[in-house]
């Protein structure tokens, strides 16, 4: 057990003992060398918590699930993607300031961030991009012809079986009535044929544009190894480039429900 882990466990036990939180959402040992989400509710269980380089999943997804909300006030082990998600979810009024205690685990101990101001301040000191590899891949694809990109996505999406793991794992996909399930009209074909998969992923990327925290938890969740995060990260880059807005940043309104009369484009005739 590392120093970071022992600090985390001690912090969790104390928080639960004093009753300041009802549950600590963190990572525990999983099968096949992986980590899994754990929901620690008693001080004695704090030993289940681990923290290392295998902790990737964006735990913010659990904060809005009814079964988790019912447990009471949560603390969450907050890797950078979780912190960004907290800010974005608060911006979208899904979380109130102070609802969630963020636990940032570092070599210098556990930092408790009790409100959004503290989270934003901490984020300001972190590197901007969560996924340099995604940027490189997007640049590689952008340099191709449209036909080459069509072939790439056709090949990748041919393995998509519409399991919706990407949606389920994403903290921003919290809509209780998702467009996918709308059947009057059936916007998105349910079937996993080429159209049902392309339209689903395009729709999801558009609904994430300006909101995606670029954690790539969607791609990690995909059982077929499809890099679905590239579509949403691309949309995010497009929003940033064209409107200067960014998810998880300090306060600008959602890019697609606001506008500037001076927005510039070069393709409208």
């Amino acid at each position: 057990m590392s120093v970071r882990e022992s600090d985390l466990r001690a912090t969790a036990a104390r928080l639960l003992e004093t009753g300041s939180v009802a549950v600590v959402i963190g990572y525990g040992a999983g099968t096949l060398g992986r980590r899994r989400p754990v929901f620690v509710r008693a001080p004695a269980q704090a030993g289940e918590l681990v923290f290392d380089d295998e902790c990737h999943q964006n735990l913010a997804t659990y904060l809005l699930k009814p079964e988790i909300r019912r447990l009471g006030r949560p603390a969450v082990v907050a890797i950078p993607s979780v912190l960004r998600s907290l800010v974005q979810l608060a911006t979208e009024r899904q979380l109130k300031d102070g609802d969630v205690l963020a636990l940032v685990v570092g070599d210098d101990g556990v930092r408790e961030l009790a409100d959004l101001a503290a989270v934003r301040q901490h984020l300001a000191g972190l590197p901007g991009s969560l996924h340099p590899a995604a940027k490189t891949e997007i640049a590689r694809l952008s340099a191709m012809t449209a036909a080459e990109r069509r072939a790439f996505w056709s090949d990748e999406l041919s393995r998509c079986i519409k399991c919706y793991a990407c949606r389920a794992a994403c903290p921003m996909c919290y809509c209780e009535r998702c467009t996918t399930e709308c059947n009057r009209p059936q916007w998105i074909p349910v079937a996993s044929h080429g159209l049902g998969t392309l339209e689903y992923h395009l729709m999801r990327a558009m609904h994430l544009a300006g909101r995606c925290v670029e954690c790539a938890t969607c791609s990690r969740a995909c059982p077929a190894g499809i890099p679905v995060h590239l579509l949403a990260v691309f949309a995010e880059e497009s929003v940033r480039r064209q409107f200067g807005a960014e998810a998880g940043a300090a306060g600008p309104a959602y890019a697609l429900s606001s506008f500037r009369p001076e927005d510039q484009e070069g393709f409208i005739r």
Partner: peptide, 22 residues
């Protein structure tokens, strides 16, 4: 139309990225 313009600015980019003939 301001909202529409923003939407098209992103959607057109995304369509092109997905290889649709914009």
């Amino acid at each position: 139309n301001f909202h529409a313009r923003r939407r098209w600015m992103v959607f057109r980019d995304l369509l092109d990225f997905a290889g649709v003939d914009v």
